[in-house]
């Protein structure tokens, strides 16, 4: 990933965090708020390329993915979305809200035992977000939230491919603890803004919207953009 923030007219905001951290709820609220204010918003999520995802689903179901294949296939999915869906919108002045960015790959693939330098090199030319937030939640709280929502865990999601644990929830807890350490290290290095995701949701939104204020004021070309869309 580039060291400098990108130079596109649009704005790139990223949320990161373990499953059950509340980042999806937060991004939903953020999207509604921005749309109400009239901003052109585009949502994208990790592992969602319409071209790569069917194959990804197939290989995950068959449990064929070794750690390198897992990493490369997610990079393929990412670059498909980046080149076709994300960059054109950043060029056009959109606010792109990304549910996970390359940090997910850095953290997951590294925990899976890949060399972090190699993983970072896969994503060497990816734009750096204007704002990247880590929704910090202790893993046991995330697990309780997921259980409450009756979520079933999948093989790779729970880290069973590397933990060797038969029980998906025990594996998930172990996996999330490893990931949390790696995320906190990225926050220390200045890649991520840390948000206490145990706070009430409206408190979290206040903080996030505050962080976004300078970015929104930077989108000075927006009125012209909206006029050109309407004409």
């Amino acid at each position: 990933m580039s060291d400098e923030h990108h130079k596109y007219p649009g704005c790139l905001v990223v949320v990161e965090g373990t499953d059950g951290s509340g980042k999806s709820t937060a991004i939903n609220l953020l999207e509604d708020w921005l749309k109400t204010k009239g901003y052109p918003v585009y949502r994208t999520a990790w592992n969602s390329s319409p071209l790569v995802k069917p194959f990804m689903r197939h290989t995950k179901k068959k449990q064929w993915l070794d750690k390198a294949a897992f990493s490369l296939l997610h990079a393929s999915d990412f670059y498909d979305r980046l080149d076709r869906l994300i960059i054109p919108r950043l060029q056009a002045g959109f606010i792109v809200l990304a549910d996970r960015w390359v940090y997910t790959a850095w953290v997951r693939d590294h925990v899976r035992g890949l060399d972090l330098t190699w993983v970072k090199a896969l994503y060497h030319d990816v734009p750096r977000p204007d704002l990247a937030i880590y929704f910090s939640t202790p893993p046991d709280i995330a697990v309780a939230r997921l259980k409450h929502a009756s979520r079933k865990l999948k093989y790779y999601e729970s880290g069973q491919d590397i933990s060797g644990l038969q029980d998906p929830w025990s594996s998930f807890l172990w996996f999330q603890e490893q990931m949390r350490e790696a995320y906190l290290a990225l926050a220390d290095q200045g890649y991520l803004q840390l948000l206490d995701a145990t706070l009430p949701i409206f408190e979290q939104q206040k903080i996030v919207r505050n962080w976004m204020a300078p970015l929104l004021s930077r989108l000075s070309l927006l009125p012209q953009f909206l006029e050109s869309r309407q004409s």
Partner: peptide, 27 residues
């Protein structure tokens, strides 16, 4: 079936296609 489908999708960019091939080769 899956490989043929995704390989021949012209919308897939050069980088994404290469990474897909690399992933398949790793498998």
């Amino acid at each position: 079936q899956f490989i043929t489908q995704v390989k021949h999708d012209r919308r897939l960019g050069t980088k994404s296609r290469h990474l897909l091939y690399a992933s398949l080769f790793s498998i």
